[in-house]
Amino acid sequence: MDARRDQMESKRRENGNNQQEHGQDEPLKGTFASVLMLGAFIAVSWIGVFLLFLNRS
């Protein structure tokens, strides 16, 4: 049990080190722009059918 806890502790520490080493996130502006466009597409499609629903009800 203790051994396992030690192991987890050391992992957590490693994890912390990792984050310090790579404190700066890599640049993913293009990714962010892409998912925003994806989100916009979903929103426009959904609102379109929602308006159709309101129009028909």
């Binding site: 994890n15 990792n18 984050q19 790579h22 996130d25 890599e26 993913l28 502006k29 990714t31 962010f32 998912v35 925003l36 989100g39 979903i42 929103a43 959904w46 929602f50």
Partner: peptide, 25 residues
């Protein structure tokens, strides 16, 4: 567990959009 700053932002925006849909219906 490390999550990229922009990924967090995206998950928040995307989830917010879904919540808006759910509130509307």
């Amino acid at each position: 567990m490390h999550i990229h700053r922009l990924e967090k932002l995206w998950i928040i925006i995307g989830t917010a959009m879904l919540v808006v849909f759910l509130v509307a219906i």
